[in-house]
């Protein structure tokens, strides 16, 4: 299938430090790309660059046209970005927050999807981080953009809503949406990824299919941590606490 977005030799700088160098991959409709990497490796910055929110070197083509030749409004119609939780100082209610995502969208049904109907009239500042994260995901559902860029969408969420969030992403991909998401949980990555990008913090990125990338060798090397098999995927070996020895 033709890519919606083609990224070639992308490079990114933070201050004087080169955080990404020569990164190339494609974003296709119906595919979920998961970005994994160490802290500070440039995962969130990569998403911001894809959204056209920070400048980047290299070529970024959206529908075969350079991203920077689109106006903000045009980009917003093509790309939806979910990142940090918005500030709460001005007393917006959940309903108003959702209205800002799309004035004419079906707020009730988006709220239902993310289990926030009882919160609709509450002020954002009164909610927990997990509830606010669900509000942001509902706001995302309201966006009719073909590309979704999500920065740690399952952060702050309890198990029930993590599952709901991942299922929602799978459904959206099945309906043709292209999704790029940063995750930290390897099991979640394995559950949804078609394509995986591993950012190692040295500026390089290794990109391939989920099967190629989610191997014990690559992951334990990337995170510099020994891993054990857990279900279908690899997970860190946290060991067990020996409470007996503390008595």
């Amino acid at each position: 299938m033709n890519p919606l977005m083609q990224i070639s030799q992308l490079s990114l700088q933070r201050g004087s430090k080169q955080i990404l160098n020569d990164v190339s991959f494609a974003i296709r409709p119906g595919e979920i790309t998961v970005i994994l990497g160490t802290n500070g490796a440039g995962k969130s910055s990569l998403l911001l660059a894809l959204a056209g929110l920070i400048p980047a070197g290299g070529t970024l083509l959206l529908h075969d046209t350079p991203v920077n030749s689109f106006s903000r409004v045009e980009l917003a119609s093509q790309i939806a970005w979910q990142g940090e939780l918005p500030p709460t100082e001005f007393g917006l209610t959940v309903h108003q927050r959702l209205q800002l995502a799309d004035q004419h969208g079906d707020i009730e049904s988006a709220a239902e999807r993310m289990d926030i109907v009882p919160l609709l009239n509450r002020v954002l500042g009164e909610l927990s981080s997990g509830e606010r994260q669900r509000v942001e995901l509902a706001a995302l559902i309201l966006r009719d953009a073909p590309i979704w860029l999500l920065d740690e969408p399952t952060t702050h969420l309890d198990l029930k809503h993590q599952t709901r969030c991942l299922n929602m992403m799978k459904e959206q991909a099945a309906n043709g949406r292209a999704i790029v998401t940063v995750l930290h949980d390897l099991q979640q990555a394995a559950a949804i990824a078609r394509q995986v990008a591993l950012l190692d913090g040295s500026g390089g990125a290794e990109i391939g299919t989920a099967d190629e990338m989610l191997t014990i060798e690559k992951l334990s090397q990337l995170f510099d941590t020994p891993l054990i098999k857990q279900g279908k995927v690899w997970a860190p070996d946290y060991g067990e606490v020996n409470y007996e020895s503390t008595r």
Binding site: L48, R72, P86, P87
Partner: peptide
């Protein structure tokens, strides 16, 4: 202005220059 209440990044992502 309403969109700016969500912070600059969100406002930009929602189409505000």
């Amino acid at each position: 202005l309403d969109l700016l209440l969500l912070g600059e990044r969100h406002a930009e992502a929602l189409g505000v220059e």
